[in-house]
Design a protein around this nucleic acid. Structure first.
Lengths: 239, 239, 239, 239
DNA sequence: GATGAATGAGAATTCATTCAT
DNA sequence: TATGAATGAATTCTCATTCAT
């Protein structure tokens, strides 16, 4: 099982969206399953409306459960949001980490990580929206989780860049802070591209888009990095 | 007038934050001034709380006006938000455009545009927060304005890249979609770097940070772009 | 103006209970008036239903205002309850204190105080219910106010008893603790009698009942006190 | 068996508070035992929170049973409350009646009854709280039970007083209503003194407090009563 | 006998919005 | 121009109560 398909694993798979209101008797199901449905619904609604505009009513309805049940299992709107963020962050991180399979060259690992990132965000647009937009704007506890995620990814990238540089036995070793900055730029670029890719091509399937997007980024960043490593820089007043 | 100072122009400069609650009759002021105060307050509050969590009460209080007056001038919460977005988008766009002063080499123009972007967003964090986070998540009308802004910036960048390419008389012409993606990557990287730069070194004033940030970005992107233009690309299966 | 009529002063006097829902336009009134109506309604409802069973909806409706207005003026259910208790406690205390007019013999002052107590509780059964039943059962803040009221009354009674004893130049001076116990017993008896009087004779007018009740109490307590002062006590094993 | 120990009989003696949550299968127990546990828990919770604020959840948890079981045995919250009141009222009544053992002089019987009353309420504060505060404020059905209890006690006291009067072969026969009022005053004083005694000296065990309290009360009331019986009254305008 | 799963109904509280002055 | 007074319509959250097992 590769990273991408693994990443898709975590959401409403065989559990059919239950229909309520349609006369039938109450659908009994184990707590675990219900909870997943609720999280799925919550991610969807939070993504669509934003944290405060999302209503527990809508979430419950989309989850096919009653509000009291949502509260019974997930305690409060805040806890629910928190659970969403944690789940989505973990899923994304797992996807990316799994893809950056050790035992390959550093540039290829970065390439795979990028592809996994784009693929995952494309597959889970709602989750990505929650992580990238909603979570950042709602108070410490949430923002911290997202910041942690960012840091983890940036660390991974930093490490990959450092490895490549070591591989390349470059002449001018990079400043650590510069590498870190680079990693953040890359992550930011990736995030932005993810959003853009989602917005631009919502028609076609996800994989090709992920591939292209990753390629674009690699084209700029990696080659730029090589030049950087070789000491060739752009300077504001050059020539 | 340079880009940075122009960017600062649009917000409450000499108009003192009005003191209410201190008894006495109300300070009559021309509509224009009051409206600006309201928009300033609204941007601040929308940035801090998000669109739906922002309350008209808080905005009115911060603006030093009564709620009915806010409604009289700005009609509704939605209109108010819309006005905020438009104003902030215009200000940012103006700052960037003004900085990319024609009559210079394309790479230098991009450099200045980047600097202006960083400087403006650093100077107006609330405005930037509204544009980058809040506006995207609230239904067509708002998202459209922001999309328009993004498009304008991307267009500008695209144009600058294109000019450089023409300057370089490159062999392999770039795919338009690729250029657009590049622009988005650049903007995303810029955003991410802005945040990172802010977090890393919060001591110094904004301008130097903007300069460094822009430099880091140019180091990677521009050189990478040159290579790209010259047909040298990274390929997943290379070597 | 005597104590009893003064005590009646504080509640919905000339303000007519406003009729809502009856088509008419919104009744504008100064905040002070509205607030009093709300407190009146709240006392009524809290007395009828108890703190937790009382619904803000019912209170608002009885006050002839909308719920938001109640919240605007009185903040929260808890604050509203607190305000009720404070107002009622103060009113009762004032009535009793005013009646125990200094410049009279101690036994007569006690007599008047008792009458005022019975008259006031009879005139404001809801207020008395809130003070005597509801407030005691709902957490420190409320209970404290009521405890304070009790203490004030007990202190007053203690003082009156002490004065009488001094007047009587009694042979065996009473233990301070015993006097205090006496005062509490008297207050408790008064409270109980107030409740009983309310329950028993709801038909007739209030004043006569108050007079009779007070007389009964004085008959037992005062004479008993005299005997006590004179050293004649009942003893469990006496003869 | 004396009154005090009889009074303690009615609550969870050897049945240990059941431990739930610790895995393992449920302890099957005879209905009778379970029901008593439930009532005990309910009295506790009703006393602590008041009728409406008490939640069936909390009661069930404290009783160590599941909510459906509570409903199976006790039908509804209202029925449960009703059962609590009935049980506590009966227990208190039994304690008092048992103590007022016929075959003794009337004043001594009253003395024992008072002691039993104080002892029982001190031993079962929750039960007493439910009876004295909660029950009175919740609609006919409950209030009636409590009124019945009050009446029984008042009747008992009235009867004892009457007997004494007969013993004393008094000149001026007492008005029935006056006697009843007296009984209520006595009970109220007792209640108040119970609270005050509890608050003043929380160190010692209950019995001594009960003894003292009863003595204080008898000192005032009984002697006062004797005087009353003998026609010596306090009069508002006397001397 | 015993319970995990589930909910309809209603609680407090807030908010955007409007009059009447 | 400016505002104190007022509210309909949500929103979050809780609770008594019931099934299906």
């Amino acid at each position: 099982m590769n990273a991408v398909s693994a990443a898709q694993e975590h959401q409403n798979r065989p559990v059919p969206r239950p229909k309520r209101k349609s006369g039938g008797k109450v659908k009994r199901m184990p707590r675990e399953v219900r909870e997943r449905q609720m999280l799925d619904a919550a991610v969807e609604v939070f993504a669509r409306r934003g944290y405060s505009a999302a209503s527990m009513d809508e979430i419950a309805e989309l989850a096919g459960a009653s509000k009291p049940l949502v509260y019974l299992y997930l305690n409060s709107k805040e806890d629910l949001f928190s659970a969403c963020i944690r789940r989505e962050a973990e899923a994304l991180m797992t996807a990316v980490r799994t893809a950056a399979d050790p035992g390959d060259r550093a540039d290829r690992r970065l390439w795979h990580a990028l592809r996994a990132f784009f693929a995952h965000t494309a597959e889970h647009p709602a989750g990505w929206a929650v992580l990238s937009c909603q979570a950042r704007t709602h108070g410490e506890p949430f923002a911290l989780v997202v910041a942690g995620l960012r840091q983890q990814i940036a660390d991974l990238v930093t490490q990959l860049i450092a490895e490549s540089v070591r591989d390349a036995a470059c002449a001018a070793p990079l400043d650590e802070k510069e590498v870190s900055g680079l990693a953040h730029a890359l992550v930011g670029a990736a995030e932005s591209l993810a959003g853009w890719a989602n917005a631009t091509a919502q028609a076609g399937p996800a994989a090709p888009a992920a591939r292209e997007t990753a390629a674009t980024l690699m084209n700029v960043a990696w080659v730029g990095l090589e030049n950087l490593v070789n000491g060739r820089r752009w300077a504001p007043v050059r020539s």
